[in-house]
Design a protein around this nucleic acid. Structure first.
Lengths: 217, 217
DNA sequence: GCAAATTAATGATTTATTCAAG
DNA sequence: CTTGAATAAATCATTAATTTGC
């Protein structure tokens, strides 16, 4: 009954994550997941389907969008800092993989490394410089903490032992819906893929939460 | 045996279209297909699988890339023309959907309309002007012919009558490969989806071929 | 309070850019 | 050098927040 309201006469509506789904996705993201492969998407989808209707593409899009908007928010913030006052950073630049740079009036440049997906604030001319003390340093280091969430770099196979489906690179096949109204609800039963992503939070992770939270003030 | 050479010890190699596959894809493209939906991709994939290994994503990527590179080739050519001599065009501009413009030293501007995916050469200041005679006009009209291939706007359902799978908007589900080595060969049998895209060429279409061919010289 | 009207978030597509196989 | 593959950026479109006038 309540579903009918949402669907509005059979027309497809866009997916809207339930609080549980959102919480789980954000947990995955916070742990460092950025570009989930097909297997991971499938597992996540199956898991989250027990909380409500969801498709693989929803998970896929969620990570795409979340990463992109996280990044643009962060970049905006860093640029604002740079424009507010002079920051001298000490982070070396990976010349090979750096592509996008933005320079402000103080000759500070915001580098973006696409391979590691990290930002680096650097003065334009010198490659090494002193790091300024005080508030800016704190904020800056917080940012850096946030920018290196890492982990999850372990091959997906490690976590997928008890999954029926063997991971195989990033191979996808694109399929259409067979059953329009009742999508990949994943049989609506508790799945054995459920424990693949333990949500146990370590102290280390808690710290990251704190920094990222204080950053977003 | 010959497959083993291609696969090089089980490692996946990238898809390479067979001449038949390529011909068919180009035919579809020439007829105006640009963003095939899931159903269309599936049909095309099934059809082409009788000529060799192919996946839905291959078809998907092929159209993405072909459109993009076709466009950039065309744009490059048009810009070169504009820079070579002055062109006065008479095509009105859709102010709402126009986004990208490129202007040369002669104050001619190349507009790109993303919704209709068309290019328009226009002088910067005046909205209407005389169309110059001669070679440029010919080339220009050829381009325009090429840019309005149209058709295919009929709803996909029309062509999908005898297809087992009902089209449903643009809904996708993203699946992973279960069987890495033997992908969606689509059962390797002649399929009834085969006649969905008749390759019968009308005189009208032949004309388009001529213009686009002469354009790409 | 409450619903119409705006605005902000964010899900979904498309396009551009980049990487790398052949 | 061409082009298949993958990712990132830009854009479109719908939903949720919120503002506003009554």
């Amino acid at each position: 009954m309540q579903f009918l309201k949402r669907e509005k006469m059979g027309r497809p509506t866009r997916w809207s994550p339930t609080p549980e789904q959102l919480m789980f996705l954000e947990e995955m993201y916070r742990k460092g997941l950025r570009n989930p492969n097909a297997t991971q998407i499938q597992s996540i989808t199956c898991h989250l389907s027990s909380f409500g209707k969801i498709e693989g593409k929803n998970v896929f899009y969620w990570f795409q969008n979340h990463k992109a908007r996280d990044r643009q928010k962060l970049k905006k913030k860093l640029l604002a800092q740079m424009n507010q006052q002079q920051i001298l950073a000490q982070y070396p630049i990976d010349a090979h993989s750096t592509t996008t740079t933005t320079t402000n009036s103080n000759n500070n440049t915001l580098f973006h490394c696409p391979t590691t997906d990290q930002y680096q604030i650097c003065p334009l001319t010198s490659t090494t410089a002193l790091l300024q003390e005080g508030e800016i340093k704190e904020a800056s280091s917080q940012v850096m903490t946030y920018l290196y969430p890492m982990d999850l770099s372990k091959p997906a196979d490690q976590n997928m032992e008890n999954c029926m489906i063997r991971p195989y690179g990033k191979d996808w096949i694109v399929m259409m819906n067979i059953n329009p109204n009742n999508l990949p609800y994943c049989v609506n039963r508790p799945l054995k893929t459920l424990p693949l992503f333990p949500i146990t939070t370590t102290d280390d992770l808690k710290d990251q939460t704190t920094s990222s939270t204080s950053l977003s003030l």
